Simulated assay, not measured.
Amino acid sequence: MDTQRRTLLAALATAPLAVQANLAPPPEVGSELPGARLLGSGRLTFLGLHVYDARLWTADEFAADRFDRHALALELQYGRTLYGRLIAERSLEEMKRQGGFSEEQGERWLASMKQTFPDVNKGDRITGVQRPGESTRIFVNGSLRGELRDAEFTRRFFGIWLAPQTSEPRLRQSLLGPALARS
């Protein structure tokens, strides 16, 4: 990604939604979800450190209370270096917040995420595309990295950010704000 786009995206992460609504989706979102628009964005910090900026891309008919039934894309642009295996482990921990699943499922999901999630550096983007009831497609800096074909995984993975049980309710509000008001 070029420096101009990174600078623009960083500035837009804190811009009013009216300004963000005019932002064009990244190429992978445009090809996977034609007509998708930015619904909301927010920043995740931990102990004051910038972890990533998140942007949620959806179609106009998106409903927050049924997020798992809509095609959507969640774009994360990292603010620091992180190891892929740690991203996978933390993702599984967050998925557990939505209720139990079998140990076998968890082990299978963790192995798939460890294989799919790369180490990231500041400025890298991971975009997850939800194909409801079907799969999660993972793009890294615009290139397809893998697809996890498991409907339950897909629902729980995007639930990390979008389910009411999220550990980051303010980020959820920033991503879903306009859609929460309609729900």
Rank of each mutant, 00 (worst) to 15 (best):
R149V: 15
R156L: 02
S91K: 11
Q115A: 15
P164A: 12
R90I: 06
Q115W: 04
G123C: 14
T116N: 05
Q173G: 05
S174P: 01
P169L: 06
F101A: 09
S91G: 09
F158C: 09
Q173P: 01
P132Q: 09
W109T: 00
G133R: 09
S167Q: 14
G106H: 00
I160F: 06
R172S: 13
D124G: 12
G128C: 06
R125T: 14
M95H: 10
R131L: 13
D124K: 13
E147M: 11
E93R: 12
F117P: 02
T136G: 04
V120D: 05
L110N: 02
W109K: 03
R149P: 07
D124M: 12
R125E: 11
T154N: 14
P118S: 01
S135Q: 10
D124P: 11
G100D: 09
E168W: 11
A111N: 08
R156D: 01
V120A: 08
F157R: 00
V120P: 04
G106P: 00
Q105R: 13
S143D: 06
T136Y: 06
R90V: 10
P169K: 06
I87E: 00
V129W: 07
Q115S: 12
V129D: 06
G159S: 03
L144D: 07
T154L: 01
E147P: 05
D124A: 12
R137W: 04
P118G: 01
R90D: 13
G146A: 11
S174A: 15
T154A: 15
G84S: 04
E168D: 14
R172G: 11
E107A: 15
L148F: 10
G84Q: 02
E93Y: 09
A88Q: 06
E107I: 09
F117Y: 14
R85Y: 07
G100F: 04
W161K: 07
